[in-house]
Amino acid sequence: MGAGIETSGVVLAGGMSRRLGRDKAMEPFGGEPLIRRSLSRVSQVVDETIVVVNDAARGRELPLPDETRVAVDRWPGAGSLGGIFTGLEAARAEWALVVACDMPFLSAPLLRRILSMREGHDAVAPALDGRPEPTHAAYSKACLPHIERRLRANDLKITRFFDDVDVAYLPQSAIEELDADHLSFFNVNTEQDLDRAKRVMDRERGSVAVELFGMARIACGRDVVEIAAPLDGGLGRVVSALADACPELVGVAIRDDRTGLLDSYTFNLNGNEFVSGDAPRLRPGDRLLLFSSMAGG
């Protein structure tokens, strides 16, 4: 296995985009092509990324980051199962997280949660209404011979090979803790899907409560501040909106240029998830906790 590479990320981009009528990987969404959006979410939780394409020419056309590798589908025409095989085989790590390029609302915490269940299994798949989501799942290389056998038999329904390996299922309740509306699994196939996705994104521009602790609370003289922020705009936008609402925080918890927090402060989302460099996707009603980044004492 590659040095320091514990998990690979595979983004399937071999689809024909027949129903949308244009290459959905290239479809602009939230200011970037859809595939870049998927890749950036996946790369938050894996050590390398691989995009599976139909042919090498398409690989060259796609707007991919330099560090992303391209793998050409070894089983053209065999649908997603062939893509999973190709990506998993190309992976430098023992495990690969597989998603599709047309999923605009992938959630890093949910992907992390899937990876956390690997130990002792061959694959991990989230299940909704009892049905696994195989193009939003993690596979180990132990799956390769079983996938290959199905491919050779032209038995292309992905979950059929789940009978041959040990699959851990992430239950719906656990999914909903992190993604109540199952938006992670939403994929764009039609013009209507695209509209719906854009509506979801618009809806998520809303209000967020920031709970203040320590000197931040003392400086502002209050415990909670409500801010209106573009929820998909990353933490920089949140910090900037917070600085507008509470200028006292600048120099205490917020950098003088208002682009981020001072190193001495950190955000926690809803009392659960610590927020590092990668911005979480905020939802209306979310609560961001602002407190010291030093946990000692």
């Binding site: 602790f213 030093m294 004492g297």
Partner: peptide
Amino acid sequence: PATEKYRTLGTVANVSVFDRL
């Protein structure tokens, strides 16, 4: 910044944060 908490409220700043978490 690495000592801001300790220099201002001290370790007892943990109480409210720990309660919330």
